[in-house]
Design a binder for these strands. Structure first.
Lengths: 337, 337
DNA sequence: GAATTAATTTCAATCGTTTGCGAAAACATT
DNA sequence: AATGTTTTCGCAAACGATTGAAATTAATTC
């Protein structure tokens, strides 16, 4: 790479010291107007750009935040990244993205990568595989601010930003009941994830509210298209198949619709389905999917804002109190119910 | 942030100089085995991690690549990011992501950001708005390797990685013709983009091959869901509406299907539709969309690999010859044709 | 035991920028 | 003319790590 123009080049050409150049460039009062303009003009002429790396070293901060995320290709996560990048951009931060690909091992390596890259703070949504959280604890021990979003864990002393999973699930199931469903299945996420638990309990409580008994056999673990399609196939061929479905995400919900239609059932007449996410695909499926909007973009924004807040107040971090921000969800009613 | 352990801390505790620590840690032969193990043990005990920022400054390289991309939320681009991150990860590079949001102004700022962040190289897919490419020229003038992907421009001395748009379009339209379509519309991308031109010309040549006259009125500019739906509405209400549609991306294709069904036409019996991208949505739409697979993941991988190749060979960059890698596309036939 | 060689370790400069402190001008005051 | 004030600028250290060259110590040879 071509050597970039440095403050030293300007100093040499002007017969001044680097200190003077540095001060002139940032309008330090000690510098006479004459030399100040001279310096600025030459700097502009030469196309001088301060070397961020040198500043990073001196200031012991990089204006960079690390993002550890399961998979970029998932619509919900890409919406989140969008929100994060938006806030980072406005605050002159850069974002380094690390994908865990839902792999615990890779996630551990990712945490090491953010450490060696000396990012100022980290945003994390951990992988499905992750049960041991000591790699995140190590970040916290290093006093690097960490904000968890979507997939969170209470055991760590860190901020959290999540969608209101309980409320969303409650809304969804309540809606199904109001549409006349009495037997409602839930396609759930793994129960070691908070989102899995919360959505299940929203489902549970909505049933309770309408005095519908909870039936464990109607709760199945299925949070991908393929597993959901398979599970839907099995459950829909039972003689007493449920007429309502609440899926933990849109892909699973769409799989249910596909399979129901495949089995000759009409949606929403015979079977009603609600998803969770409000992805692009929800509006595309036939019939269009009723779903819970998770506001991924806002969630990403909030997470990033919370992180930046921590970064500003870093000096006075006497007694750390983790915050938990809950983003309200919204039921988007379409024609699948 | 807590002060990290440095080489100096180890030196102090061991009564040695920093040079010795540095050499011991990297198995320099000058260091006696005794001190070497002592150093390494203490380093491990204290949890020493070399400060990447200091190294970046010294080596004048950051092991970081910048990515400038229109919008992360678009499936095709997120697949590309996935591929890029994969290759970067394997080669110990980090990726900084900058979104242009299809805005020229923001893209210019993005190029400045990658410059001040001193990334080693840049991957770019420029915005639809971009007509002036001098901001990229500035990167090249600074001898920062740039690889363009998907949206490329021949006027710049830089490598390119693109899908075989011409071939994909040709395959798509040829397929429509073989399925019996004679009047085929093309929903195109802006013609100042290479992808716009290439796909149009693939469309054109496929018609030519079967001696079908080219009809300018069947080519409309529509590359988003909304514009495509509107355009489909207009064109399908003409008495001589086309029976085949080739859309520049899946979203536009799905909009056509939706609108056709809305107007009481059957897909694929009355109207056949082919998209371009092979997004998740293509498999979800009803009927499932025949489309051209762009292999976004592979495209991202190739782009990143090409960039890394440039970074390795940087010293001997005497006569620069831009390369152009074309990723073959594949027609995925589903039930919309 | 002195001299030579070999094995270890340290010094100091470097990457680009900032900043406290001291120094040298320029100016003002008697 | 001597002193006191400002104004303006440079020195040098610092951030953390690397590295050629010099210096120290230990080992070897005659």
């Amino acid at each position: 790479m071509k050597r970039q123009i440095t403050i030293k080049d300007i100093a040499l050409k002007l017969g001044l010291s680097t200190s003077t150049i540095s001060r002139a460039l940032k309008d330090h009062p000690d510098i006479s107007p004459k030399t100040r303009t001279a310096v600025k003009e030459l700097a502009a002429l030469l196309g001088y750009r301060p070397n961020r790396v040198a500043l990073n070293l001196r200031n012991n901060s990089t204006s960079t935040i690390g993002l550890i995320i399961p998979e970029i290709e998932h619509y919900f996560f890409s919406a989140i990244i969008n929100g994060i990048e938006e806030v980072a951009y406005k605050n002159d931060y850069s974002v380094m993205v690390f994908q865990s690909n839902e792999s615990y091992k890779r996630e551990v390596i990712n945490t090491q990568a953010v450490l060696t890259n000396r990012v100022d703070g980290v945003l994390v949504s951990f992988s499905k595989e992750t049960n041991d959280f000591s790699h995140f604890q190590k970040l916290i021990d290093n006093e690097i601010p960490v904000v968890f979003f979507d997939r969170v864990i209470d055991e760590l002393q860190a901020d959290q930003v999540v969608a209101d999973d309980y409320q969303g699930a409650f809304l969804a199931v309540n809606h199904l009941i109001e549409k006349g469903c009495r037997r409602i299945a839930h396609f759930a996420a793994p129960q070691h994830l908070a989102i899995g638990k919360s959505r299940l309990s929203g489902y549970h409580d909505a049933l309770l509210k309408h005095s519908i008994p909870f039936d464990q056999s109607l709760v199945v673990l299925a949070d991908t298209f393929d597993t959901a399609r398979k599970a839907a196939h099995d459950i829909l061929r039972r003689p007493d198949y449920p007429t309502g479905f609440f899926a933990v995400n849109d892909m699973a919900a769409i799989a249910i619709i596909k399979e129901a239609k495949h089995l000759g059932l009409r949606v929403p007449e015979d079977v009603k389905v609600v998803g969770f996410e409000n992805s692009k695909s929800a509006a595309i499926s036939e019939p269009e999917l009723t779903t819970v909007d998770q506001f991924g973009f806002e969630l990403g924004r909030e997470a990033c804002q919370q992180l930046l807040r921590r970064l500003k107040n870093e000096e006075k971090n006497t007694d750390f109190k983790p915050t938990k921000k809950v983003i309200k969800t919204r039921l988007v009613v379409r024609s699948s119910t």
